[in-house]
Design a protein around this nucleic acid. Structure first.
Length: 228
DNA sequence: AACGTGTCCAACCGCATGGGT
DNA sequence: TACCCATGCGGTTGGACACGT
């Protein structure tokens, strides 16, 4: 027997949100603040599950969201952060004010992956691709760039350690590629991130309001991230 | 205009996590 | 320590839209 559903699915709407639902959610959160997502739908008069309300608010309705195209600077920042953090979209989003993890994840999968491949860079490992590897990755369709079924036949692919997917026949080429320094340093935030959810998360942290490495709170200063 | 194909992104799902008891 | 519950996260899906033929 699995876990019980997060809400009573029989009486909840699914799919695209209507203007009226948006208005109700905005009005409720303006009046009562974020949080208590489970009870929010009922209190706000919405036939939605709490998860759905939370997602709608965070990804679409929040007033501090930055809509519109990503800038070149944001692109490069995302690439840099992804090389350090991997698919930790929420951590990456914490470093990009006004952007959501979902937005960044989508943008990565639709634009940046392709951009990196065009540059000859493996979007998974951030290492330079040689021609055969590039062909392999280009043929890999799944979102994370790893298709285990395909790769398990590849003698250079270590299924237990996909990040080590390199062409072993081309060691000289690999030596030219600098290793990334994955040591993260802590530095104070450049600006406070103010929201009720951040206030809530602060309570989980130490007295300074910063989590270890600044990862949880999103206060890790990008300027302190560097490669060797 | 009609159709097929590709792209984008909002939303969903299942699992992980952390706090409370 | 075990369990329950609410929330958060990352992967995936499906529908809308754009574009080419």
């Amino acid at each position: 027997m699995g876990r019980s559903p997060c809400c009573e699915k029989a009486h909840t709407n699914k799919g695209a949100w209507t203007k009226e639902e948006d208005d109700r959610l905005i009005a409720y959160i303006r009046a009562h603040g974020e949080g208590c997502w489970r009870s929010l739908p009922k209190a706000a008069g919405l036939l939605r599950c709490g998860k759905s309300c939370r997602l709608r608010w965070i990804n679409y309705l929040r007033p501090d969201l930055k809509r519109g195209n990503f800038t070149e600077d944001e692109d490069e920042l995302i690439i840099k952060l992804h090389s350090l953090l991997g698919n930790k979209w929420s951590l990456i989003a914490a470093r990009l004010p006004g952007r959501t993890d979902n937005e960044i994840k989508n943008y990565w999968n639709t634009h940046i992956r392709r951009k990196l491949l065009n540059r000859g860079v493996d979007p998974l490992t951030h290492k330079q691709l040689n021609e055969s590897t590039a062909r392999h990755v280009a043929n890999t369709i799944c979102c994370n760039g790893v298709n285990y079924e395909d790769n398990k036949e590849d003698s250079n692919y270590d299924i237990k350690n996909p990040n080590e997917f390199i062409n072993k026949d081309d060691d000289d080429e690999m030596k030219k590629i600098p290793d990334l320094n994955l040591d993260l340093r802590i530095s104070p935030p450049t600006e406070p991130i103010m929201s009720s959810s951040m206030d809530k998360s602060k309570s989980k942290n130490n007295g300074n309001g910063y989590d270890f490495l600044g990862l949880k709170s999103g206060f890790l200063d990008f300027r302190s991230l560097e490669t060797k």
